[in-house]
Design a protein around this nucleic acid. Structure first.
Lengths: 188, 188, 188, 188
DNA sequence: GATGAATGAGCTTTCATTCAT
DNA sequence: GATGAATGAAAGCTCATTCAT
């Protein structure tokens, strides 16, 4: 199906270059489709972007959910959970980059609103996970939403750094640092 | 001096729109200067961007340093430190946004390298602060650099959320969450 | 076909103004085509120039060849040959001007090289004609290539002068002078 | 004197790049003078160009005249004369290039007229030399002006080729070819 | 359904020229 | 006499979008 090929190509290009730097030509070429076909399937660049991001998130959340084994005690799997998030971030880092950073001006306000809502869904997804931890009495009382934002920010900055400076921090170091901070903080 | 006016205008526009969406016309208009004057003072858009970011960071680091009272015991002022960082982030949020997010492709590789180095200076600056805490025996043993990246990521994502959704999280909530996570973590 | 219209317009403008003074706007307007269409068909001004010159030369050489009746004895048609060259130079003077004079700095070195190669093809074409005369025993022994350059130089300067100072030298005077010099020289 | 330094720099730049490609900045820098000083001494780029060309020709004609020993019989020195012209062309090739090729559109019509007049002075200068040969009975009866144009065209094209393809034709070959054609023509 | 030639508004950059000092 | 910061019109080029086929 051409639509699917286009979305795949768009995901690749948008995540590599960001919304404004991505060119429709390039997406068409990568999808092995004529430029007109892009507009036959999506009314504009903005709508293509929107579809790319929205449909991409489904798969990410799906993957994270699959990897979670909610039956075991929360505490026992806290570290595993963190590792999973990191692994999935790195695996989907292109889409993650879009979700977390591409909110610059110049996009249709409609599309911008949609992306914000997608972002919020991701934050909410993490918040739900924290909530379960809280319910099971393992996590402190806190505003899980605010905490989720902090967690996502940490994952993002550490993974970005890892991707940008290959070799300087290992995946394990990221997980270690995240686990330490998130479990017992920095203070002695 | 026109150069200064240009840099101020550039900081405003670049931070609002990002490098690629910023228009030289707009910067010139805001600086109340002819377009040619931009090029008389800076050889290209990339160089103007580079100068904006570099010179902007000086002032940020200066401001943070001024607000720190390194004489008092580290622990006592841990929360104050966090509050200061948040306040200064919010005050300089436009530049902060550039520093943390604008590393997209399509910029001169020279300029890109310079921005990465500026980013690293900021990370190092935070790392030094953490290091002092470690020396004074208040902070756990850890890789301060990796921890700094995590701290910066949290500040960034929380402040961004605060700026984007005015009213949903207060400044105090940000500080509270950050302090909690950073001091004792999420686990009970 | 728009491509053809563009090449015709380009030949006109380039020959009238030279490479650097020719404006893409002007070429587009003359070709009754949008500016973007120029770039859809030719990747840059340089490439358009290159195509104009290269494709123009084909037609010139074709025309000269058609007018030559190689069956008759060389000497008998020496003057006719000269007249033909002059007539064709004047008819195609715009392109001729480019071929002979437009090698100024500031053009892509690739394109510059191509133009030099086109020039050389023209010189070689004349050299072959002289060579036939030599083979038929009518012309002296000489380096035909060097002689061709001299011949082309004479044609160029006389025709240019004729075009610039209409009325001062007639076509016949040009042919007469050229014939005299080329056949028996200036000395008594 | 700044005026003189400017003219020297202008001669160098104009001859290297041609009128349109030469930049006032570059001339000012080479003359070690502020850009404003150019306009203090010459009212515009066109006038500077005009002055450069006009004053440059004086020196060329002077040099050629100095090297001529008009006392000896014309025929005896025909070849020497040719060699002198070639040598001086090559020595002053940058200015020669301007004189012979830089008449493209886009220059003030006033200045353009002046350059044409300078060109004509050069042609006339050669014509006078040929005239002396005619008077001394060595040269055929002909229109010396037309012949001069042909001679200048040959010198120009051969020297240009020599300068562009170093090593392909030697100075001696140029002189040899020119002498052969000009003295007895190409026909046996 | 799909194409790709064509478009034109809008971008960064250049550079001759001016003028306050 | 001399300067150089400032100008702005004009250039080459890009790219999302359209539409006839």
């Amino acid at each position: 199906m051409k639509r699917k090929k286009i979305l795949e190509a768009a995901a690749y290009i948008f995540s590599k270059k960001g919304f404004h730097q991505a060119r429709m030509d390039e997406i068409a070429a990568l999808a092995e489709v004529a430029k007109g076909t892009l507009y036959y399937n999506f009314s504009s660049k903005s709508m293509l972007f929107s579809a790319t991001v929205t449909e991409g998130l489904e798969s990410i959340i799906e993957q994270i959910t699959e990897n979670l084994d909610s039956d075991r005690p929360f505490k026992e799997h806290f570290r595993t959970l963190i590792e999973n998030i990191i692994a999935l971030y790195l695996k989907n880092n292109r889409l993650a980059k879009i979700l977390l950073n591409e909110l610059s001006a110049g996009i249709d306000s409609k599309v911008l609103a949609e992306i914000e809502s997608v972002q919020n869904r991701f934050i909410s997804f993490i918040a739900e996970l924290l909530d379960k931890g809280q319910e099971s009495g393992v996590l402190k009382t806190m505003d899980v939403r605010t905490a989720s934002i902090a967690v996502v920010g940490q994952v993002d900055s550490l993974c970005k750094y890892h991707l940008r400076n290959p070799g300087k921090i290992s995946k394990d170091q990221i997980a270690e640092t995240l686990y330490n901070i998130l479990s017992t903080g920095l203070l002695k």
